[in-house]
Design a protein around this nucleic acid. Sequence first.
RNA 1: GGCGCGUUCGUCUAGCGGCCUAAGACGCCACCCUUUCAAGGUGGAGAUCACGGGUUCGAAUCCCGUACGCGUCACCA
Length: 479
Amino acid sequence: MAEPYVRTRIAPSPTGEEMHIGNLYTALINFVWARKNQGKFIVRIEDTDRTRYVQGSEQRLLQNLKDYGLDYDEGPDIGGDYGPYTQSERLDLYKKYALQLVEQGSAYFCFCSQQRLAELRQQQRKQKIIPPKYDRYCLRQYSKEQALSLYQQGKPAVVRLKIPQNQSIEFIDEIRGKISFDSSLIDDQVLLKSDGFPTYHLAVVVDDHLMKINYVIRAEEWISSTPKQILLYKAFGWQLPKFVHLPVLRNPDRSKLSKRKNPVWVSWYLKEGFLPEAVLNYLALMGFSHPEGKEIFSLQELIKVFDIARINPVGPVFDLVKLEWLNGEYIRAMTDPELKEKIIQYYNRFFNKQLDKDLVAKTVPLIKERIKKLSDYWFYCRFFWERPISYQLNLQPHQELLARIIEVLSTLSNWTADEIGSLMVNLAKKQGIVTGKFFMVLRVAITGQKITPPLNESMEILGKQECLERLQLALKHKG
RNA sequence: GGCGCGUUCGUCUAGCGGCCUAAGACGCCACCCUUUCAAGGUGGAGAUCACGGGUUCGAAUCCCGUACGCGUCACCA
C-alpha cells in the first residue's frame, strides 16, 4: 500500500568498521520504501561517541552505499552538492532541547561520577534488584535552580530523562503489531553526556523529528529502546513516527550475523565477485517474498511490489550458497559485452590487474554459464594468460599420443574450433581411444587443468602456434 | 535473571479457518544432454506446520500455556 508522503533514514555510526551487511539490508528497505512512495531517503551520520570515532569512516560508509546504488536524496548544502546530515555538527540543537526538558521538569541534571554509578550498579546486582537503575540521587539532592546553577558553573553533569513510573507504554510495530512495556523497568536515560554530546536516544528523536522522518525503519534490536524514545516524543509533544523493526540476519547457528562466523562487510561481497544487484536481490528475499513468488527481480521491480506488510518477523539465516546461485543467474542474464566490462572492471579495481579487453571478450561466451562470481573467471581462464607450470594429470604415459597430436595438428591450416574438433575426434578413433580420455589428455596438455572452458574453442582463441608450443612443452615436461 | 520478540522441509519462503493427504526456490540425490566443468531438462528424498491445551462442524492459520531460539538491559549506537 502506498503512503502519501514518506521520509526514511539510515543512521550509520563512523566507528571505523566497514558497513555491515545487516546495515545494507536496513538501508535497502528504507530506500525502497521511500522510493515506492515518492518520498525521501536520508543518511544521517551518528557520530556522537567520540571514543569510538574513526576519521574517514563516513566516506567509506558513503562509498559502500554508492557501490550498491542506494543513493540518498537530501542533506545540508556543501558547496553546490549536498552531504549527509552529521550529528556532531548539530550539538547546539541537542543541548537546547535537553535543557528545555530540564526546564519543563521532564529531565534533570545528574552529577554522579562514573565510579559511583558503577558501585551502585554492582550493589543493586548483589541485592538482586532488577533491572539495575539509577537511584535518582541528584534529583532528590538538588533543586532545579541549584542544579542549573552548578551546571552553569561548569560542574560536570549529564542530563537524564525522568522516566515516569508504573506506566504502560504501547506502540505499534508495523511488522509485529502491538508491543508494550512497563515504564518502571526503564532506567533514567542519559540524554546529554558530560562532554556535551547527546546520547543516541536524544539525538535520534530530535533529528528524526526535525527531519520529519515518519517511518523509522531499523533492526529488531532497537525494539526495547523504542519506549524510551516514545517517552521523549511525548515529553516534547511531538508526533510519533511509525516504527518498523526489521528482522536481524542470522548466522547458520541462528545467532545474530557476526563477523566471527560469516563474512559481513559489504565491501567483502564486492571483492569476492558478487554483483551489487544480486546482493540486493538476495537481501530482498530475507524476510520478504515477491507476491508472485518470483525469486529474481530488479530493484525497480522490488520498489513496485514491496510492502512492509509482507515482511516476516522471523530472523532469517543468511545463506551464502543461495546468494552464489542468484549471482550466477545475474551473470547469465547479462549480455556478453556487459559481462566483459564487469570482469575487466572487477580485476582492475580489486586486483589492480589490466586484462586484455579483446581476450576477455573472446573468452566470455565460454565461461558465462560456468561462473557464479566474477572471481571465478580467473579459475577458468587463467591459462589464456599464462602457460601451465604444472599439470593436473600425469602426461608421462601419453608421450606418444601427444607427439601424434602435434603431428596431426601441424597440418591443420584452417584453425577453427570445428576443424580442431573433428580432426581430434578422428585421431582419437584412429588411435582407438575413448574420446573422453583423449580430450582430457589434450586438455591438460594445453591448459594444465582438468576443468576448463570448452577445449576446441579455447584452442581456437589461443591460436595454432601457441597450442603447438604448449604441446611441445607438455611433451618435454617430466613428472 | 527481568523484559521483549520469534518458532512451516537443512536453508529462504508460500500459506492469513475449509482448495493443505502443506506449494515454490537454494542445496542434496538420480537420470537425460555431454569432450572436462558448468548451464539446461526430467524425476526424487526432505516439514506429524516446536510441544501441550483450548475455540470451532472444521486450525499451519485464532486464544492460552510450556519448551527452545534470538534480542535487550551503558555518559555505545
